[in-house]
Design a protein around this nucleic acid. Structure first.
Lengths: 324, 324
DNA sequence: TTGTAGGCGTTATCAG
DNA sequence: CTGATAACGCCTACAA
């Protein structure tokens, strides 16, 4: 690997001059510029990014810490984030915590150490201390971390209202909701709040099933199946996400219940892929693209030491399918 | 940010000694070790990764260049790759080319420059010169690049046979196949070869529709719809991937054709998410986990300057749903 | 318009 | 067992 010095020697110039050409800084004669470019060509020279990073004390790298890009929501989110960040001159380091606190802590420890200039987090683990003392610019997506980390989320409360009211409008009275564990401080909890408030406002009793994130698919099916066992008269389900909704569709089918005739169903997220594969599913669309864009924008503010709001809410939309 | 020197000063030692403690190298008295650790604690010191990278001339970063993690296949692949690489002590830099040659070239130029220790590529663009002269260890997934870059792929030929024979066994004669553009040098082409050979072996005429990768969803629907217009008597379709298969399901439904009664359908890929959302879809499962594992293993061989085979084929499996 | 010298934070060699 | 010193490759005051 040739270095600056090699180029300089070949062009009969100093390292400084070559560096100047590289960064077009200061006055340079055209002749010098040409000589330098020629020498670079001949040697197939490329500047060493790491050396630059060391000097500049920045890496132009942004870390993205999420449960897993295998999940459509996070996959699509990552794609949008990557695209935005790329436009802004950043590259992306990913860490998939797989809901494993150990792995998450590990990543954090490593990323916080000057490896990245900033961090976008959307993991589900609670109370990882390191976030606090890091000093690294961070934004959180759909996850409340602590006072000084801004949160980007969709308007979960409104989403909960849209879904619940729609089910009620369509005549359902016994409506069940699934959500994540209630002890997790996440904006998604507001869907549950909205659901419960709407139900009560209509004199209906809310019933929420809590489904943990990191359980096996088999266990999840078991929990969802329980809904039907424990509430055979259920008329509608507002699921916490589209894949759960899909599972519920299978289960209902196995139990001989036709959707929407015997059961109304509304999901949540509305990712591109789900809309392609299950266009019949009624769901609440989170504006993943906008969430990504906003996250990057807020992170840039943080990087520039500008102050930010504590929370940014993006609008949701009801996607009308045939299931609910 | 405190540095080695600060720790040294605080512990009344030299940088050398502190560095030794950090990397437990050489002989050290317990007392010294304790002092160093204490000083590090007090200062909340963390070694600067970039400085290390510069000295060691390696980053422990692996680049993954793919069309987009928003696609379930690549999303799941990325998740597995990340997990494997993490186990091996690497971190992952992603680049989503979005099938944009400009962006891909851009990424390459940047990544090849000592920013990553190795590269895993699965993009669809042809003839990007830089791959050749890079000298960087590279492996390609499902994509033929050039002679000295090993390819990891599933056994596409066998997949093509499994799907086609199944459709024939189930009584279909007029079977249509969709595939990517034929001028692309990709292992996926072998599915088409297999399809055409099996068809001919049964005295049936193969018909392949070529579907470009980077076209709008609307255009894709148009092409797929054409199948039914141009071949109203089509009895079965072997789609090049599951999302296309899903589209075909919608179209068939809109045209009043019941699957599997009026049309048999087999997809390809068998990602986790598709199996969850569309369990009824018969499809050929690519062993994404194994492909990831093998890619990482081969990349490690390359990094260790060991020689590798040119191609690694992993076994596929037919997932029997109800559509075909 | 170009060159010299010192530093970014770490590690390794070699001496003590 | 520990310390001084020179590298890793680049960038920028400051000088010329």
């Amino acid at each position: 690997m040739p270095k600056l010095e090699d180029v300089a020697k070949r062009a009969n110039l100093s390292k400084t001059t070559v560096s100047r050409v590289l960064n077009n800084r200061g006055y340079l004669s055209q002749k010098t510029i040409d000589k330098v470019y020629q020498a670079m060509e001949e040697l197939n020279y490329h500047p060493n990014v790491v050396a630059r990073q060391l000097y500049k004390n920045k890496t132009d790298l942004i870390g993205i810490l999420l449960p897993t890009v295998a999940n459509p929501f996070f996959g699509e989110l990552t794609a949008f984030l990557e695209d935005d960040l790329y436009q802004q001159g950043f590259k992306v380091l990913i860490g998939n915590s797989m809901n494993n606190p150990q792995k998450e802590a590990d990543y954090l420890q490593q990323l916080l150490i000057k490896q990245v200039d900033g961090l976008i987090v959307g993991t589900h683990n609670q109370g990882i201390e390191q976030y606090h003392q890091s000093g690294l610019p961070i934004v959180a997506i759909d996850r409340i971390m602590n006072e000084d980390i801004p949160v980007i989320a969709s308007d979960n409360y409104r989403g909960g209202i849209l879904a619940t009211e729609r089910l009620i409008e369509r005549g359902a009275k016994k409506i069940i909701h699934t959500n994540g564990p209630n002890d997790l401080e996440t904006p998604a909890k507001r869907r549950r709040e909205a659901y419960e408030q709407v139900m009560k406002a209509h004199n209906l009793s809310p019933i929420t099933y809590e489904v943990d994130f990191n359980i096996t698919p088999a266990d999840k099916v078991k929990i969802l199946r329980r809904i039907f066992l424990e509430h055979p008269d259920v008329e509608a389900i507002f699921a916490s996400n589209d894949t759960d909704a899909a599972q519920i569709m299978q289960i209902a089918q196995n139990l001989g219940r036709q959707i929407p005739r015997d059961l109304l169903l509304i999901g949540y997220d509305g990712t591109q892929i789900v809309r392609e594969l299950l266009p019949q599913l009624t769901t609440v669309i989170q504006p993943i693209d906008q969430m990504a864009k906003k996250s990057v924008a807020v992170l840039k503010q943080r990087l520039a030491q500008e102050s930010t709001k504590k929370e940014y809410l993006l609008p949701v939309k009801l996607q009308e399918g045939t299931t609910g």
